[in-house]
Amino acid sequence: MAQQIKTAPENWLSEYGDILYRYALIRVRSEATAEDLVQETLLAGLQAVERFSGKSTVRTWLISILKHKIIDHFRKNRHEITVLNDDETAEDVLAYQFDQQGNWKINLIEWGTPEKSMDNEQFWVAFNECLSRLPQRMADLLLLRAVDGLATEECCELLGFDTDNQLWVTLSRTRVKLRQCLETNWFSKE
């Protein structure tokens, strides 16, 4: 009963507002847009509250609504995406870790059992920090694919990639960058 009262719609804003806001901010990187998305999400939630089955938590349910709103946002604003980051998708991302022949010139630190990190809230602070340091288009791409599971074709369309291959190359470099950041900011300090 106490749980039900806590998650009644009038408490959503105070209970989940900040979480929704932070998640939106990670995805869209604009405070104003993130605020709008939180509002749209909560209003959509209110209108659909009858259909909330209670199978998931309210938090999970609201985040799933927010994720749809974020994808809609990308669809609506795709003309605004400018391809500014092409230099960052270029070879120099890799120059740090490979020599001219394509062999490793750095050692990768052993991450041990990284799954253990997932129980540590500080790990997630570092993880989010690393996501926020990725160039915008790289982060958009990685999250649309790996989190939202959007089809490659749709990612190409939303983010302005001409070919699947271009998208794969960028995605690979995004992973290189994210991996380097996690190593520097978490696994080498652990």
């Binding site: 985040i63 997630w124 602070v125 989010n128």
Partner: peptide, 9 residues
């Protein structure tokens, strides 16, 4: 990435 939305700081 699959679970990070559950750990938003």
């Amino acid at each position: 990435l699959g679970v990070f939305e559950g750990h938003v700081p």
